[in-house]
């Protein structure tokens, strides 16, 4: 059904996304490191760049981080009822600097 997945939609000036830096706050409650500095590899197109550079959609039932190259979903952050549900399945790899 690949022809049904739709072409990557073009961004318009009205699109309401933040950059991935906006994840730093909520994810600081989950990770000891700043995950937005990690290099992530997109599972859809293979593009590799900092999490902070990805596009974060917050006006949705859950926060959705998308690849700026192909629009594929990289991460879902769902905060409900005192729990954080983190879905990282859109990345094939995260490279995290540790000191």
């Amino acid at each position: 059904m690949s022809e049904w997945t739709g072409r990557p939609a073009e961004r318009s000036a009205e699109d309401d996304y933040l950059d991935g830096n906006a994840l730093a706050g909520p994810l600081s409650e989950v990770f000891a490191i700043d995950i937005t500095a990690a290099l992530g590899t997109c599972g859809t197109c293979g593009d590799r760049r900092a999490v902070a550079e990805a596009h974060l959609y917050v006006n949705a039932p859950a926060k959705i981080l998308r690849c700026p190259s192909c629009g594929g979903v990289l991460l879902r952050l769902d905060e409900r009822g005192g729990r954080v549900i983190l879905d990282l399945s859109g990345f094939t790899q995260l490279t995290i600097e540790v000191r």
Binding site: A9, E10, S12, D15, Y17, Y57, R66
Partner: peptide
């Protein structure tokens, strides 16, 4: 509410 870019 939108979880991605708005298609035109």
């Amino acid at each position: 509410l939108s979880a991605g870019p708005t298609p035109r």
